[in-house]
Amino acid sequence: MTKFVLKRLAHTVIVLLGVSVMVFFLIRYLPGDPLDVLFTQGSGDEVTAADDLAEGRRRFAEGIGMVGSLPSQYLNFLSEIVQGDLGTSIFRRIPVSTLIATTLPLTLQLAIAGQIVNILLSLPLGIVGALKQNSIWDRGGTAFALIGTAMPNFWQGIMLILIFAVWWPILPVSGVMDLGLSVEHITGIPIVDAFVTGNWPAFWSIIRHLILPAITLGASASLVRILRSSLLEVKHQDFMDAYRARGLRERSVTSHMMRNALPTTVVIFGIRLGAIIGGSVVVETVFAYQGMGWLLINAINQRDYPLIQGIVLTFTVFTVLANLLSDIVHGWLDPRVKVEAKT
């Protein structure tokens, strides 16, 4: 098992290396140079001589390591990462790691809330669909999941805002919590901090602000079809009939069915978890939820190279770790996998 985890962690390093190459070079080939924005005639308060501008630009570029050939810049970037330095945001003048540390908890909070909605919807729909296959409940649940998957997140989010924040204003339009409220920084995750410090006004405000984006993320009920089909796969295996033939009551047979369908569902859930954190980019932008996804969109618009690199790499780490975790859980739930990992 340890060997398996170590091997996978080594793979993670390779994946990160590949992603870093892609993100580093691709964003630099995009049209638009952030330094053009910073050092253009008339961009500052005073009118500066063209020579001074060029000199300032050169010194600035040197300061953030944007000199020399791209490959040599990339190698510098790599050696800094190895030392734990993700660089400094060009426009915010704040270390990228600090920006990620403040926005990541919000993204996690939103992703987890979205997945709670997803699971609360998917479990009953998937289980009823499999147990009462082809019934009206099954068809209804599958149709619901299909519509949820087919509707783009941004459109769904805007519709929810329109209905529940504009026409029938019971929930806030955007943001993390009401203006004027704040929570003490303990874990960085606002909802946890508000709960721990007993800051109830902030706690309720955070929850109210979470509802619409969480529904947008989770209402696709993406697990319904996976859960339903893995339950159906087990349902039609001979060993279910073997249990019945042995005299087991239907209730126990059903519980065996659930337990055997669990590994597949958990693995797919885990694989998607990484993608979901990345998928929050759109939802965060629609709801002006100031998490890592929202920050990424801003960074891309400004061509803030170090910030883009840092966020994309963080997303990659989460995706790869979610995959690793789901593989470990799979091996733990399904004995057939464990042996394969050993050999």
């Binding site: 295996q237 001979d238 060993f239 009939d241 073997a242 249990y243 019945r244 033939a245 042995r246 005299g247 065996h256 337990r259 055997n260 739930l333 399904d334 004995p335 057939r336």
Partner: peptide, 19 residues
Amino acid sequence: YARKVQIVFQDPTASLNPR
């Protein structure tokens, strides 16, 4: 009744709970 009559299925891969 289930005690009196037992069945052996065709495919033992499918008829034994893999877990």
